[in-house]
């Protein structure tokens, strides 16, 4: 007989159409169907959602904070990716 704990699931909820799904939290469920039902009861009791995604936590691959330097810092000085890098005369509107 199985004595395993119910796996952990991450819950993403779209609060209304037009918005992205956002991470709301996690919960335990035996499978995806149950995770959806539990998410509905746990995270949308106050009308917070129109759509739910569930992902078993173990399927999420996360970047390692120890690599933050090489992953994210190189983007810090690429100012030319931002509009403010470029000089445009004040009289030019709507650009």
């Amino acid at each position: 007989m199985s004595t395993k704990n119910w796996p952990l699931w991450e819950i993403f909820v779209r609060s209304k159409n037009g918005l992205e799904h956002r991470h709301f939290g996690s919960l335990h469920a035996t499978d995806a169907d149950m995770a959806l039902e539990n998410a509905r009861d746990v995270y949308t009791r106050r009308n917070e959602g129109v759509s739910i995604w569930v992902v078993e936590s173990k399927h999420i691959t996360a970047s390692n904070p120890e690599n933050s330097g090489e992953l994210f810092e190189p983007a810090q000085d690429k100012v030319y990716r931002h509009p403010t890098f470029y000089d445009v005369p004040d009289e030019v509107k709507h650009m």
Partner: peptide
């Protein structure tokens, strides 16, 4: 039997 199920039954 656990929190999730408790919440569902109360609903």
């Amino acid at each position: 039997p656990n929190l999730e199920t408790d919440i569902a039954c109360t609903n």
